[in-house]
Design a protein around this nucleic acid. Sequence first.
DNA 1: CTGAAAGCGCTAACAT
DNA 2: ATGTTAGCGCTTTCAG
Lengths: 340, 340
Amino acid sequence: MAVTIRDVARASGVHVSTVSRTFSAPHLVNADTRNRVLAVAEQLGYRPNRAARGLTTGRTHNLGLIVADIANPFFPPLIKAAQAHARARDYHVFVADTDEDPRVEEELIQAFTKQVDGVLLCAPRLGDRALARLRRQVPFVLVNRRLDGVPAVLMDVGHGARLAVEHLAGLGHRRLALLSGPEGSWNSGRIREAAADAAAAAGAELTVIGPNSPTEQGGQIAAPEVARAAVTGVLAYNDLVAIGLVEGLAELGVRVPADLSVVGVDDIMQARLNRPKLTTVAMPTIAAGRTAVDMLLQLVGTDEPGPAALTVLETTLVVRESTAAPVEGRAARLSSREVT
Amino acid sequence: MAVTIRDVARASGVHVSTVSRTFSAPHLVNADTRNRVLAVAEQLGYRPNRAARGLTTGRTHNLGLIVADIANPFFPPLIKAAQAHARARDYHVFVADTDEDPRVEEELIQAFTKQVDGVLLCAPRLGDRALARLRRQVPFVLVNRRLDGVPAVLMDVGHGARLAVEHLAGLGHRRLALLSGPEGSWNSGRIREAAADAAAAAGAELTVIGPNSPTEQGGQIAAPEVARAAVTGVLAYNDLVAIGLVEGLAELGVRVPADLSVVGVDDIMQARLNRPKLTTVAMPTIAAGRTAVDMLLQLVGTDEPGPAALTVLETTLVVRESTAAPVEGRAARLSSREVT
DNA sequence: CTGAAAGCGCTAACAT
DNA sequence: ATGTTAGCGCTTTCAG
């Protein structure tokens, strides 16, 4: 085994408890002794064993971070921000991926219990009831999901969806479609509600198509149905779906934005790369990651003062090239076209 | 505190060691007792404390995974694969991001010591000497980096670079540039060597431009220099750089592939989305993530038989739209053009 | 300010 | 097959 507190104690001629204090309560030990201990520790290459410490203190100084899909470009910036922020506060973070499966999600939360001081649940797919139950096992904060009494950071995607629909309506679109997200997604619900409201207010008709897998493939698969729906504007659950939709549409000979306007949600890097560049709702992922860590640390009893138990972050609409004014009679023309 | 092994023991009328055995060596305990213990444990909601277990066994069942930048699209698929693979073997993984800073990299490795059974170092930026020293603190396996005596999984990017240069040469390009990567990058060195070899073999001239930040910005910044270099084909350190380069070039009025051919490395999702779709060297990231975990677990003494201490994974060239035959006299025309 | 002693939750010989 | 007894490395009363 490696060098322990005991080795340091022996080598510096003090008792282990003094060494311990040197690291966990330096002010309780005489400056001279402290320096000596520190020097010896340094020289021996001593590093406190966090697990052992956690055993007595009850705090592991570890956090769990659970997302549906690490490879979904929406998450990495959030993970990166959360990880960096946590590290700056001397916390390490376990990252895990549920593969969009609620059961895996539950298993992971269970597995993290006792391993971590708290977990960040990003856009969980689990039901309210399960979440409420799990909550008693381990403290957590939710990202993009609201549940009574549980701290959360929300990116106000409803607002973004409203802006998107108003943008479309402002361009003159009256027949809109919404490509909804996966079953358990809270965001999908918020987008849908807000879009419906905004559409009604603007006197536009909104058809909901879904649920869809939150991937490019999901969008591509939905393309024929969208084409058949005789709409001129579409709001997709996220950018990946939007990008897939544009691709699928292209294969059907439907051009964006000439024949159909498409807006996404997330503003992932790909949105800017896509041709046409995607009009989309930008999400403050970095701020969300940081804030979530702050809230979690506050929740698990760190002294650091933190934000309130519910933080709502604003979203904005980024208008790019995938939206344009509809052309007269387009809807009719589209609906009568032969589509598989 | 939550429910411990002791609570289970009391409630099921056996000694703690029996409970312990029920979980860590089930075959050593009578089926009836085992079932009873299991039932009680289940009912009480008992979950073993891995940290406590680790204290006595010396194995934490945790892995560390260190990358230069979580938000670089090259890494998420690798992280995802490694995490999933590790979890299937009952290992949790700490993910950390160095922000391309070797000092942070070193700090992280230090911090993970004792916290994990081993660490996966993906494309480390640390020097050989530092790596060799650190290696004595914690077992690790390298991804895309070779160091004597240290297990590694390599994606044969040299081969890919060679294919790329041959592809360019085959198209008729004779004046090539290489946008190299960041200082500490082993991959960048391999690409450079292989590209130089292949260029020489094909009778082409190769200008090295760099080092460059491994980001879109890095490519964009290099664009003027590339334009000035009077080359007709470019191999970039990675897709991000290639994409940034294409953008930067566009701003200077240089079109890809009409005026200049560009090849990237990595085949990230963005490569396909970019216009023109990027010709690039595809990396087997998922296999790499899995293999690295296997090697690491083998290294730290799991019984599972694993692959050898050095695994080289093949890369391939994906030809898309960013490369084409050069047009007569283009190099001269480009070099004489006014470029800032 | 520092030492002594107990114990965190669990495993690992060693007995029985 | 199960109980006993020591710790693992560290923190935390409690004395002094």
